[in-house]
């Protein structure tokens, strides 16, 4: 894992990737900092600058992850990695940690801004620290998603654009979720589609029509049963489901100076989940 990590870390700086990411990100951070914190405005909290910078990170993070797995596949160097005496999990975690290290390193440079501000007055250290923690976990989640998308294709361009699209969708979904229907019937239909999709995945992975059909029948029966017994369970379920995927919603507390453990667990689950999917997807490709 350390071998992969150090190789990837060097690769970021052997190519222009690392420099481009750091330059673009720090340049935009500087502009935001100047306009929100140096030139006095009505809203001049440093935590606001940080929360705005998360969106910029969503835009530039594909630079870090788009190559991670896709380029290895394209250049057939994955044959070297996957035939070496190292597990796929170690290889993927090594690659993720390298992207994570570069992100952390870039983020660490920005600590100079609150330090600068502290020379000219008192700053809320606690909320800035929690804001940084929130930023780090939110960014790590996007990186894990990017590594997963990179494992789906051989083209780093497709991986980059898809990561950007999916991250933007996850970013915006929370803001548009209020327009979704809240009635029980719509909720039931939504859950039904969701479970049928899961059954399709069962078929895709197991290639057993019998198992998929059996799962589908049980799911349909359960959902209809629940709907007729306790309708209110399905009310507003679409919004709750969509909001669960909204990464920014889970970071709100951090910018207010609250270290919310449930949000930390959410981000950890998101990161581990997507790294797990990446490993499983590569494993599945070996077997199919």
């Amino acid at each position: 894992m350390i071998t992969i990590l150090s190789k990837e870390w060097k690769a970021y700086f052997q190519s222009a990737t690392g420099y481009i990411f750091m330059t673009v990100y720090l340049f935009l951070f500087g502009i935001y900092f100047t306009y929100l914190n140096v030139i006095p405005t009505p809203n001049n909290a440093f935590t606001t600058t940080l929360s705005n910078m998360v969106f910029i990170f969503v835009l530039v993070s594909p630079i870090l992850t788009m190559k991670t797995v896709s380029e290895e596949r394209k250049n057939r160097t994955d044959q070297l990695l996957f035939t070496s005496p190292n597990s796929i999990a170690k290889i993927i975690i090594g690659k993720f940690l390298a992207a994570e290290m570069l992100f952390l390193f870039t983020l660490a440079i920005t600590i100079v801004y609150p330090i600068l501000l502290s020379f000219y007055g008192s700053i809320p250290y606690a909320s800035i620290i929690t804001a940084y923690i929130g930023f780090f976990f939110m960014g790590s989640s996007i990186l894990a998603l990017g590594v997963f998308i990179s494992s789906l294709t051989e083209s780093q361009v497709i991986a980059g654009v898809t990561t950007l699209g999916v991250s933007m969708f996850i970013w915006l979904i929370g803001s548009i979720s209020y327009n979704f229907p809240t009635d029980s019937f719509s909720g039931m239909i939504f859950i039904l589609f969701l479970f049928l999709f899961a059954c399709m995945l069962i078929y895709q992975f197991s290639k057993s029509m019998l198992l998929a059909m059996f799962s589908a029948i049980i799911c349909v029966g359960l959902i209809f049963g629940l709907y007729f017994v306790k309708k209110e369970l399905f009310a507003g379920i679409i919004i709750s489901f969509v909001n669960w995927f909204s990464l920014p919603k889970h970071s709100k507390d951090f910018y207010l100076g609250i270290l919310n453990i449930s949000d930390l667990v959410y981000y950890m689950t998101f990161i581990i989940g997507f790294l797990f999917f990446t490993i499983r997807f590569i494993e599945k490709r070996r077997w199919s």
Partner: peptide, 14 residues
Amino acid sequence: IGYLPELPPLYMDM
């Protein structure tokens, strides 16, 4: 096992 695939798995920037 030592393996040399048909296309050597080389990192061109190294």
